[in-house]
Simulated assay, not measured.
Amino acid sequence: MAKVERKRALRGRAGRMKGGRGSGRTNPGHVRLWGRHPVEAALKNPDRQHRKLWATREGIASLDGDLPEGFPVEFADPSDLGRLVAKDAPHQGLVLECEALENTFLDEFATGEANKPIIVLDQVTDPHNVGAILRSAAAFGAACIVTQDRNAPPESGVVAKSASGALETMPWVRVVNLARALDDLAEAGYWRIGMAGEAEATLDESMTTGPMAIVLGAEGEGLRHNIAGHCDTLARLPITSAIESLNVSNAAAIAMYAAATRSMD
C-alpha cells in the first residue's frame, strides 16, 4: 500500500471521553496525575503541557532533577493533596494538573516492524488494567496500544498511576471503529492474533515472524464475535485447569513476552 493510501486507511480518531469525578480527569482536556513516577514522567515529557503542580516539600525533593524556573507550584499538606485526587490515592506528595496528550494515529506506528507488536484492546474498560498493559507494552517494546474511543477509559490519573510512567512514553491510539482498524492492520501486513481461552492453538503455535497484532478482550467477556472475526487466528495461553483464566493485563504481559522472545529466523 502506498504511504499516502495507508495513512488515509489507518486514520480514525474520535474525541476523547470525559472521566468521572476523582478519576484524575478534570475539565475536558485536563488531566490530574499523582504519585512520583507518573508526575516525574509527565514533567520530563516534552509533549505534555503542564498547568500546575501541588506538592509537599518532601514530594518536590523526591523528584529526579529540578523544576524549570518559574514553574507554577503550590505547596500543600498531604491531607490537602488528598482532596485533589481519587479517594485513598497514593499521591506521594505530588499532584500535577496538565493538558491531555495530543491525538495519535495508527499510521504513525503501524510501520511493519516485526519486533514491535501492536496491542489491540477490545472493550477493556478498567483503567488499572489499561495502565498495567501500557506498562508491559513499554517494557516489551510494543509499537502502541489501540482501543476504541467509546469502550475504553479516558486518560486519567488512575491509568497513569497503574502505568507507572509509561503513559508518557507508550503511544495510545484511539479509533472510532476497532474492526475497521483491524482490517487496516491486515492491509498494512500485520498478522492478527485474537486471544481466546477456547481456541485450539496455543499462542506459540499461532505466531509468525512478521509484524503482528495481539488482540485481547475484556475480562470475563472476552473478544466480541465481530472482533474475533476480524482476526487471522485465535490463540490461547497454555494455562492449567487449576485456574479458569488470567487477568487481562497478566495475559497481555505474557503474550508480549512471547512475542518479544519468538524466533525471527
Rank of each mutant, 00 (worst) to 15 (best):
P78Q: 11
S79T: 14
D80M: 14
L81E: 05
L81H: 06
L81D: 01
G82A: 15
G82L: 11
R83W: 13
L84Q: 11
L84R: 13
V85N: 10
A86T: 11
D88S: 15
A89D: 07
A89T: 07
A89W: 07
P90G: 13
H91R: 09
H91E: 05
L94W: 01
L96N: 10
C98W: 06
E99L: 08
A100W: 05
L101T: 07
E102P: 15
T104S: 12
T104Q: 12
T104K: 13
F105C: 06
F105G: 03
F109R: 04
F109K: 02
A110M: 06
A110Y: 01
T111Q: 12
T111M: 06
T111K: 10
E113K: 14
A114Y: 04
A114G: 13
A114S: 15
N115P: 05
K116D: 07
K116R: 14
I118F: 01
I119K: 00
I119N: 00
V120N: 02
V120S: 00
V120Q: 05
L121W: 03
L121D: 03
V124T: 07
V124C: 09
V124R: 01
T125W: 03
D126T: 02
H128Y: 02
H128D: 05
N129K: 05
N129M: 09
G131Y: 01
A132S: 14
A132W: 00
I133H: 04
L134C: 09
R135H: 01
A137N: 06
A137I: 07
A137L: 01
A139T: 14
A139Y: 03
F140H: 09
F140V: 07
G141T: 00
A142F: 02
C144A: 14
V146H: 04
T147Q: 11
Q148R: 07
R150C: 14
P153R: 05
P153D: 06
P153Y: 02
P154D: 09
E155K: 05
E155Q: 14
S156I: 08
G157A: 10
V158G: 02
V159R: 08
V159P: 01
K161I: 06
S162K: 07
S164L: 14
G165P: 11
A166H: 03
A166K: 02
L167A: 09
L167H: 03
E168K: 03
T169G: 06
T169M: 10
M170C: 10
R174C: 10
N177I: 11
N177R: 14
N177M: 09
N177G: 08
L178T: 03
R180E: 13
A181T: 09
L182W: 06
L182T: 13
D184I: 05
L185S: 08
A186C: 09
G189N: 10
W191I: 06
